[in-house]
């Protein structure tokens, strides 16, 4: 086996994001980027495949230059190469424009056997990038996968589908969105952390990818975000006191009042 590609995203540290009320955009500069937590599951399955079949794991991320820290963290879970897709022209990408850039980079990385992604990002949270990237590449996509086996010819995967588990078997290549609830994800490796400090990150811009401008950034993004706002919690908890029986009656009243119980 040659190569597994893992796509990882740098996301703002939860709780650190502020929305600009004028422009409706995120004030990203104030927040540190961290590795999108579900992407750790993709890295885990990639590391398992590497252990069994001895392939190389290449991680790619589209993002600003400060995503380098995220790539190095991802690398420490057992990857072999890091590529940052970074260009001013990529700014303002929606899922389609993001997927276009990822697809161009993946094509440039031929030959490869599998592309792994997280199930969704914790900031954009659309969960569209894996399927859109697959569509642009003309590959099938499978989502919710939590176990991957390869017998030399066919892939056997288990994936969660709501309340049941489905076994998927196929030959050839695909884009896989890995289930975010793996029962175990390995910690980073000390050797890899130490190695990552010296390891160079390859940087590819729009030109390196032969990307067409009309598919990039704002011009390549059909999505119009109408409004983004910070959720305000107006309701406060209510504390009722008294004897258990009285409490139970009061609670019942409130629940009926709110039409939660009839």
């Amino acid at each position: 086996m040659e190569k597994i590609i893992v796509c990882v995203k740098g996301v703002p540290e939860p709780g650190s994001v502020k929305v600009d009320p004028e422009t409706h955009t995120l004030k990203r500069e104030s927040s540190e980027l961290i590795l999108n937590p579900p992407d750790r599951c993709a890295l885990e399955l990639a590391a398992q495949i590497k252990e069994r079949h001895g392939c190389r794991v290449v991680i790619i991320s589209m993002g600003p230059p400060n995503a380098e820290k995220v790539l190095k963290e991802a690398y420490s879970y057992g990857a072999d190469e890091m590529i940052l897709l970074s260009d001013r022209a990529f700014a303002g990408s929606d899922t389609l424009a993001t997927s276009y850039v990822l697809a161009r980079a993946i094509e440039k990385l031929e030959p490869f056997e599998l592309v792994l992604m997280g199930e969704k990002s914790i900031d954009g949270e659309t969960a569209q990038v894996p399927a859109e990237t697959a569509a642009i590449l003309g590959l099938p996509s499978v989502r919710g996968v939590f176990e991957i086996k390869f017998d030399g010819k066919n892939w056997q995967m288990l994936r969660e589908r709501g309340s049941f588990v489905e076994e998927v078997s196929f030959s050839g290549r695909a884009v896989i969105a890995v289930n975010s609830r793996l029962s175990y994800c390995r910690p980073p490796s000390l050797k890899k952390i130490l190695e990552a400090r010296e390891k160079e990150i390859l940087i590819w811009n729009a030109q390196d990818l032969n990307a067409e401008e009309k598919f990039l950034g704002l011009s390549g993004s059909p999505t119009q975000v109408e409004d983004v706002f910070q959720k305000e919690f107006k309701q406060k908890g209510e504390i009722i006191e008294g004897e258990p029986l009285i409490l139970a009656r009061k609670l019942l009243e409130i629940l009926k009042e709110k039409e939660i119980l009839k």
Partner: peptide, 24 residues
């Protein structure tokens, strides 16, 4: 065995093994 597996994957059993034998 889970935390021990994690320690192993983190290379923490390799600390004082010489480099020529795969340690740090």
């Amino acid at each position: 065995p889970t935390p021990i597996k994690a320690l192993a994957q983190a290379d923490l059993f390799a600390i004082c093994i010489p480099e020529e034998y795969g340690g740090l």
